[in-house]
């Protein structure tokens, strides 16, 4: 940080002045796109949760869904329970860069807390519902239908954890003077909150644009989330690039 510091003083300073470097930040950063790529492959291609199967189907059709996709559900969600710690890492590095802002720590800790809680209802519960469903294909069809609803409603309908995290993220960016993230990313995050609110009717609506597979309740949210996530990854990269190598470790 200081202009006087040069390589000749590094050795002398090493004992007194902590120098964090940022190779660890880069290591963690690259886990983020790797994790979300795996996440996308699992939810779209393997577990068939995206796009979600329809809510307005008969019990027999729900049973058929689990029978038809049993193998890929096992592969996809079996891998997810192993790598889901990647979500903690992806949220942890955002909290880390939020703590580098000039806004105190409160929003970083809100983001960390809300996202940690959200992993279970928003991502893992559907995995366990579907894994339980395909674990015993001969189960009573009514029970498979229950797991179908429980899994999909928890996945699409987990709203508040993420709305809280986006709120903290947006407020932190708007007050930050270090320009860790661009101001417009705060407004994209506010649109993320709007999509969570637009998904409220999934608990009531069984068909149409507000159902859990609907154009507004689901697809609008997916599009905004995809855009938001791409921006977050790009700007995490830029924030890490711009971070001074001799920045001291965080408090």
């Amino acid at each position: 940080m200081s202009a006087q510091s040069s390589s000749s003083t590094d050795v002398a300073d090493a004992g007194r002045v902590p120098r964090a470097g940022k190779r660890d930040v880069w290591l963690v950063f690259w886990i983020v796109p790797a994790f979300y790529t795996a996440f996308g492959v699992i939810f779209f291609a393997l577990a068939r949760v995206m796009p979600p199967p329809r809510p307005d189907v008969t019990t027999d059709q729900m049973v058929h869904f689990f029978h038809a996709h049993a193998l890929t559900i096992k592969i996809g969600f079996g891998i997810l329970v192993l790598i889901v710690g990647g979500a903690g890492i992806a949220n942890g590095i955002v909290a880390y860069h939020m703590k580098r802002m000039t806004v105190g720590s409160v929003m970083a800790y809100c983001y960390l807390g809300a996202m940690s809680v959200g992993a279970l209802p928003g991502c893992l519960l559907v995995a366990f519902c579907f894994l339980t469903a395909v674990y015993r294909p001969g189960r009573d069809p009514q029970l498979l239908a229950l797991l179908y609803d429980l899994g999909l409603l928890s996945y699409v309908g987990s709203l508040g954890c993420f709305a809280t995290a986006y709120f903290a993220f947006a407020v932190a960016i708007l007050y930050d003077k270090n320009e860790i993230f661009p101001k417009w990313l705060a407004y994209v995050s506010i649109w993320q909150i709007v999509t969570e609110i637009m998904a409220v009717p999934v608990f009531v609506s069984k068909a149409g644009p507000f159902a859990w597979n609907g154009s507004i309740a689901f697809w609008l949210g997916v599009v905004v989330f995809g855009f938001w996530l791409s921006c977050v990854i790009v700007f995490l990269m830029k924030a890490t690039e711009r971070q001074p190598v001799d920045e001291p470790p965080l408090d």
């Binding site: 470097g21 979500a87 949220n91 590095i93 960390l112 940690s116 470790p249």
Partner: peptide, 28 residues
């Protein structure tokens, strides 16, 4: 982990986030 002098402490925050998520499953 936050006392480690030659790193940024990003590992510590990721560890904390993962620990809380893991605990919610154990609690369930």
């Amino acid at each position: 982990m936050k006392r480690m002098a030659t790193q940024s402490h990003v590992f510590a925050y990721c560890y904390l986030t993962a620990a809380v998520s893991g605990a919610t499953l154990f609690a369930l």
